[in-house]
Structure formats: structure tokens, C-alpha cells
């Protein structure tokens, strides 16, 4: 993999982040007035003017934008309008809670979703395949808010086994993780199944079988590695979206994460906080996809060779 290729990818990633941040910057400012939203219609004209001046919103939007970009390079993402604290601090105190939940969710999702998809593909068009895929469709179809409340009623209210909301102990993780993993694992199961089926129908698999390669070896060493590219692509999107992946689940289980903060901040047009979260999301999304891109070459020698030729 050439340095030139990596530099090109990083440049594209930075360009993507810049476009996202710029879009959000403009969209937030033209769709609502922060001072009015935070202080309500009762606020006086004089107060509105003072607040806008204090927050720099009295300047033309292009000037605000230049200041914002310049501040980013100085590590200053602004202050929350709601409580005056540094936006990075406000977001950062939520990130660990979200990541701790998402990390567990991601592991469970992949541990269930990928094997289920492989299992289904290997039993293509049998009862086992249909049962697995029916379960996957069910998992995908149940809305998070419904499943979450259902779990609360069952495990908290009826059985009194688990706490209904909060994030303090390991027990608090169980229901949110089940809620989020159910739908995500279903997506991975369906996706893995399709990828595996496509690979299993390739001539080289038939050749391997004809050569007398044991079935287990065919699957693990020939089929699965070739299906991996699609699965890694999906995993890239999935992991990149983890930071705000659970807005609804966070609401249902009162999980004090970034998703809830984002919704609240958008509603109040707490600009600095929204922009910080968006920056974080785009950074994680772009980074995850950058790694996926780089991983293609590592996983598939053909891609690596092609890139070498291009550069």
C-alpha cells in the first residue's frame, strides 16, 4: 500500500469532515434563533440583542464561519449556550457512557449477527435458514422504543430482575444492549447470509469442493475470507455510527449518552455543542471507513495489487 494512496484517502476524509461541518454550521443557523429558543418568546428585544452579541450571532454568517474554523485550529469549539461550559467538556462527559454501551452492543451484535448469517447461508433454503431469517426480520422490524419498553415491563416490572433505567451497574447494560443488538444483529445476519451465498456460488468454491477439500475448510478458508470484504464494509458504517447510534435507546433507558445530548442540543440550537458532536461523529465515521478502506488491501491481495498499479 503506497503512502500516496494513504495520503489521498486522508485528504478525502478531511474533505468529507469539512463538508459535513460546514453544512451543519449553516443549517443550524438558518433554521432557528438560539437566543429565542433557549430563552423563549418572553425574552426582551434588548436581551436578545445582548445575547446574540455575547454569542457572536450578530455578525454575518460568513464571519461567524471564519471565526469558527479559525477557533477549531486553536482547539476552541465554543461554549454551551445553556450552561456556559466548554462544549468539548459538555460532550466529553457523555462520550464514555455512550461508548461503554456501544462497545458491548457492537461485540454482541457481531458475535450473533455474523455467525447467524453464516449458519443461514450454509443451510440455504432449509427450515433452519427460514427460521433464522424469520427471526432476523422480526428483530429488524421491532422498533427500539417498543422492544425497550417491553423489556422493562418484563424484566423490571414483572420479574423485578433488572433496573428499569440508569447506567450505574452492569445490570443496567443488559436491556439497552439487547434492545440495540436485536436490530443490528438482524442486519448483520441478513447481510452476511447474502455475502456468503454469493461467494458459495462462485466457480472457485465448486473447484475446491471438486478437489475434495473438506467442507469445513472450504467455508473457513475459501468462502468466509472472500465474503469478509462486504462484512467489513458494513462493520465500518456500524462502528462509525456507534457514537450516536442509540438515541432512542438512550431515551427509553435514561442513558446519559451523546445521542440524547445531541437531540436536546439541536432542539435548543445549542450551536457549539451540536457542532462538537457532529465533528466527533464525522471524525469517527470517516476514521472507521478509512480503516475499512485500508483493510481492503490487507484482506484482499487483488485490491492491494490494483492499488499498487494505480499509484
Amino acid at each position: 500500500m503506497s503512502i500516496q494512496f494513504i495520503i489521498r484517502k486522508i485528504f478525502r476524509a478531511l474533505l468529507t469532515i469539512w463538508i459535513i461541518v460546514t453544512f451543519i454550521f449553516i443549517a443550524l443557523r438558518i433554521s432557528g434563533d438560539s437566543a429565542l429558543l433557549i430563552y423563549g418568546p418572553d425574552v426582551s428585544a434588548k436581551a436578545l440583542a445582548t445575547l446574540r452579541k455575547a454569542w457572536g450571532l450578530d455578525k454575518p454568517i460568513w464571519q461567524q464561519y471564519l471565526i469558527y474554523i479559525s477557533n477549531i485550529f486553536h482547539g476552541d469549539l465554543g461554549k454551551s449556550y445553556l450552561d456556559g461550559r466548554n462544549a468539548i467538556k459538555v460532550v466529553a462527559e457523555r462520550v464514555p457512557k455512550t461508548l461503554s454501551l456501544m462497545w458491548v452492543t457492537a461485540v454482541i451484535t457481531l458475535l450473533i449477527g455474523i455467525p447467524a448469517g453464516i449458519y443461514s447461508a450454509l443451510h440455504h433454503n432449509t427450515k433452519r435458514d427460514r427460521i433464522t431469517m424469520t427471526l432476523a426480520v422480526m428483530g429488524l422490524s421491532i422498533p427500539n422504543f417498543f422492544l425497550g419498553v417491553l423489556l422493562i415491563l418484563l424484566f423490571s416490572v414483572s420479574l423485578r430482575l433488572l433496573p428499569s433505567a440508569g447506567s450505574e451497574t452492569w445490570k443496567h447494560y443488559i436491556m439497552p444492549v439487547i434492545t440495540m443488538s436485536t436490530a443490528e444483529a438482524a442486519v448483520f445476519a441478513r447481510f452476511t447470509r447474502s455475502a456468503m451465498l454469493e461467494v458459495l456460488n462462485q466457480p472457485y468454491i465448486r473447484t475446491a469442493i471438486a478437489k475434495g477439500v473438506p467442507w469445513k475448510k472450504v467455508v473457513l478458508e475459501h468462502a468466509l475470507p472472500n465474503a469478509a470484504i462486504s462484512i467489513v464494509t458494513m462493520a465500518g458504517f456500524f462502528i462509525g455510527s456507534l457514537i450516536v447510534g442509540g438515541v432512542i435507546t438512550e431515551n427509553v433507558f435514561a442513558w446519559p449518552g451523546v445521542g440524547r445530548l445531541l437531540v436536546n442540543s439541536v432542539a435548543n440550537r445549542d450551536l457549539a455543542v451540536v457542532q462538537t458532536i457532529v465533528l466527533l461523529i464525522s471524525l469517527s465515521m470517516v476514521t472507521a471507513n478509512l480503516i475499512v478502506d485500508l483493510a481492503y488491501g490487507w484482506l484482499d491481495p487483488r485490491v492491494r495489487d490494483l492499488r499498487s498499479e494505480e499509484s
Binding site: 462520550v95 464514555p96 461508548l99 457492537a106 462502528i239 483493510a295 490487507w298
Partner: peptide, 22 residues
């Protein structure tokens, strides 16, 4: 390799968060 890629990506996202959280 597949597993390694997954671990690397999640670890990266996790570390971004922790770094931000300080």
C-alpha cells in the same frame, strides 16, 4: 484479519471518545 480489523476499528473509536473525555 477480519477479527483484527474489527478490533482495530472499535478500539480506535473507543480511544477517540476516551481522549475527548479526558
Amino acid at each position: 484479519k477480519l477479527f483484527g480489523t474489527f478490533i482495530l476499528m472499535t478500539a480506535l473509536v473507543f480511544s477517540i471518545g476516551l481522549a475527548a473525555a479526558g
